[in-house]
Design a protein around this nucleic acid. Structure first.
Lengths: 139, 139
DNA sequence: TTGATTGTAACTATAACAGTTACATTACGG
DNA sequence: CCGTAATGTAACTGTTATAGTTACAATCAA
């Protein structure tokens, strides 16, 4: 399961955009209905990914790129993917004396990478601006 | 992250096939290099999904369908997907007084379902027999 | 009937996620 | 230039999922 960090991150980016950057983590937390530290932790991941910029003591969060140039994949990659960028865990240390144990990891590599790529390419088709557009049109 | 239950389940199905069903959970555990109860737990999920059949006291596990008719998606669905069949967690209980809080879940629904479908369709393209074929060809 | 096997409960350990309190650091506004 | 407010992060708690382990009742084959 992909955690709610992903959808919360999109929520954060939408709010920054709607408020032209003039918003605090406390206010965002009020909209998400959680604690401000939860918001700041996810903002920290978005900062490391180069999507936003913020500074201690200063109210306001800057979008480094417009939301039309940030895809759902960018957000997913920033907050969900582990260091190795691999979605599927494959069990290691299998018994090399066994034909299956010796070769299973390699046999799975390509199909699992393909599936991950399809997921990511689908996410990349939608920008956060598309999501904000849907939100605004709902009223 | 998708857990190793998935890759272990494929390992189990491959071993059943390679040994024509004459194999115990203890032997499978020896190939996977884990405890037999871990294997039986995953076997229980595969049984509930109707992919295998086994009985207490009887050595041997039956493949209900040939591996060529079991896709990676079938295995993934059997051991990884939660009750609601939804891959992405979306945060709930957002603030309805806020435009974004009021509409974010609905705005995310379709793109996230699309991405999940792409992942699943990609997994469905490969059968467990394909994996076993790769394994055997490696030697 | 004996021995092997399955199925499952129960316990432990670890890790990720999420919520919370606390606080040092920073910088803007009066 | 001081006080207020905000960020960034550490530290702790609670919950859940995964994984490993021991134990054992139920089952069946030989």
């Amino acid at each position: 399961m992909i955690s709610s960090k992903f959808s919360v991150a999109i929520h954060i980016l939408s709010l920054i955009d709607v408020h032209d950057g003039k918003i605090t983590s406390e206010r965002i937390a009020g909209s998400v209905n959680t604690n401000a530290v939860v918001i700041r932790r996810i903002m920290s991941l978005l900062s490391k990914a180069g999507l936003i910029e913020s500074r201690p003591g200063v109210t306001g969060i800057k979008l480094v790129r417009p939301l039309s140039e940030i895809t759902l994949y960018d957000v997913y990659h920033a907050v969900e993917l582990p260091e190795n960028n691999v979605l599927f865990t494959v069990h290691q240390n299998t018994n090399v004396k066994c034909l299956v144990g010796r070769n299973i990891q390699h046999a799975l590599t390509q199909p699992l990478l393909d599936a991950q790529r399809e997921l990511e390419q689908s996410l990349a088709k939608t920008s956060v601006a598309d999501i904000t557009g849907t939100i605004v049109s709902q009223g």
